[in-house]
Amino acid sequence: MRAYFSDIPRTLLAMGYWAFMLYLLVPLTLMMAMSFKDANFIAFPIGDLTLRWYSQVLHDKQFLEACLYTIAIAVATTFAATVIGVWIAMLIAQSGSRWSGILFALACLPAVVPGMISAISLRVFISTIDMPTGTGAIVLGHTVHAVPFVVVMALTRLRSMPPNLVDAARDLGADSIVAFFRVTLPYLGPAIAGGMIFCVLLSVDDFVRTFFLGGYRPTLPMLIFAKVQGGMSPEINAMATLVLIVTAAVGLYAEYMTRRSRSR
């Protein structure tokens, strides 16, 4: 009897977990289901099913161009943010305790500034250095946003690195550049891979920075935003479903990779 009663909180918590799960998944499932609706408007019940929205989206030149543009920005962002993030992490790891605290707080600053403020301040900043809005500005904004996450991931990995690895390399005659590329960088590998995928997802998802820093070429979030504001049809659902499947697959793969490297 007593054991029965002590299970009540446990059962309640399990129910809470599944209810929360349902809350998370229901809207997205509805969104995906609506992409098969055979009508020009969005309304429940769904009724007849069709795949024509998908074929329309896949032949939509604007959508495909936005995809390519988004991917190009994400690749440039990831490359820049990884190089700079790892560099900052190296500096923080090698500086004294007083400096490392200040530097770490500075490195994390863009992650605690609300997105809107970050976008506005970058918009002001690029105009004071006479940089035009457009692709370069978007990449800069996304990179500033992504750097803190790379720093945190690289730093966590650096702190677990045995210091004698680099010492051994130096004893064997490597100068500090060679020691970095041959010893430290390979050791950071898993953290960098995780950080890079995170950068891609941050960049692909970002709306507010792109909105204020971009030119006339839309990225995927801007395209979806414009379509939602302009009037809704299941075409947006098909578009969003495709994007969702790709980003979720990438995200899950990243999570799987980082977990595997951590357990090893």
Partner: peptide, 11 residues
């Protein structure tokens, strides 16, 4: 629980 996390703000 993390699956919807990757859907992005607008979606």
């Amino acid at each position: 629980l993390l699956v919807p996390f990757w859907a992005g703000e607008l979606i």
